[in-house]
Write a protein that binds this DNA or RNA. Sequence first.
DNA 1: CTTCTCTAGGTACGGCGTACGTAGAAGTGC
DNA 2: GCACTTCTACGTACGCCGTACCTAGAGAAG
Lengths: 248, 248
Amino acid sequence: MPSSKPPSSSASPEQPGRPVAPEAPELIWLRPERTGRGPKPAHSRDSIAAAAITIADAEGLDAVSMRRVAAALGAGTMSLYNYVPKKEHLLDLMLDAACGEYRLPAEPSGDVRADLTGLAHEQLTIFRRHPWLPGLVIARPGIGPNALRYTDHFLAVTAPTGQPGGTRMEAMAMFNGFICQFAQYEQSAAAGAKWQAEMVGYLTQAAMSGAYPHLARAFATAGPPADPDQAFERTLDRVVLAILAPTR
Amino acid sequence: MPSSKPPSSSASPEQPGRPVAPEAPELIWLRPERTGRGPKPAHSRDSIAAAAITIADAEGLDAVSMRRVAAALGAGTMSLYNYVPKKEHLLDLMLDAACGEYRLPAEPSGDVRADLTGLAHEQLTIFRRHPWLPGLVIARPGIGPNALRYTDHFLAVTAPTGQPGGTRMEAMAMFNGFICQFAQYEQSAAAGAKWQAEMVGYLTQAAMSGAYPHLARAFATAGPPADPDQAFERTLDRVVLAILAPTR
DNA sequence: CTTCTCTAGGTACGGCGTACGTAGAAGTGC
DNA sequence: GCACTTCTACGTACGCCGTACCTAGAGAAG
């Protein structure tokens, strides 16, 4: 990072007499964390993200409110807005901080299939540690420095396929989407036995009603509830296969 | 639907002297819409869902609040709670009502690949009509009668693969997940030119910083912005391929 | 007819995101 | 050194949210 200025925005000349903020960028990653003027901030983006993640891990994403996070930091509610102009940005910080937990090898091994499988397991591990994370990954682009490091790694891993960059980005979206979905399914399964039982009862009733013959057959021919880990491996295999397949 | 009672819940004998609700089911589809006693309701689940969908289409899912929906129906806020015990259930109704928009052929053609491709396009069309829908589909199981009709159809379409029911359900999750993700990406792209420009600027800056060499190379070798429709077809092809592939 | 259940709807509570204003700390330019 | 500028901290307040709880009254069941 040689220059501290965001590349000088040559588009709007900016009248010199107007000291007002030129238009603060919407993207939090374009806002400098510190400008150097004024009193030293008592907190950092990292500590804020860490506090928010602690709350989310313990009580879910809904429990993460500006008030809660500020209180956890020992700050006044509105002080938080000096660091995080909108709550949306707080989620961005959480997402990127979580992406910082990836343990990525410096170089891909060259075995694309093995690298992707390993990456998927790493991702699932992190998702299990932070149950709220899949929801964020699905909802937001994921663009902070740590997320970019992940993206870069994925591109490195898939480079041997010879596919163009855009295609590999699409593949990454598919890959991430699958893992998010699996993690969320796993959570909802673990969530409530009572709710689960209710749903199973409802579904079998629906299947037996005759209105959904194929669903009924699928239920009838289903064996034991199927090990989730096996289902993950099985479907991951197919996703990787789709990624490795040559583009039509 | 021969019996109006949810299959008699043989588990809890239910003391006859207690007139209190036995434990209302959490699942809205297990609650009868009408019991027959008392005054006739002024609204129906369908009309409520329709009102909510109208609001969501026009102003986004965040604009759908119990107050807004009730007002749109000309009802008092709290009256809505007679039909929809929790807001969560309102979302369930919306999701299922939207699933009712599928135009599904009575029988699959037998060409699995063609059927899946057609289904994907139908789904994308509906998602484009209801931008809030992918978010719901990703977040919730989708279990109402119309959603089950969709599930049944998917199982029918994929029956010729000879895969067991569970595997085909996993395939459906992958299939839906991909289309949701694409639809959401499409929306965010269409959302704001200014935000878009900001992000492109940030990303190119990041790529040029040297910290993300593979990302930089992908940027450098990228041609024109790539037609989204083509990207959809391309990735859909791979998803279908993954679905058709034999399980390891 | 009596009784009991259901519906409509108002009021109120606690929590949310955040606009706005004030007070004071820490750098900058003369 | 000093005024000026710019930043931080934080309290107050507004409008919205989901929804618990309560009162009336409609209408089927006995």
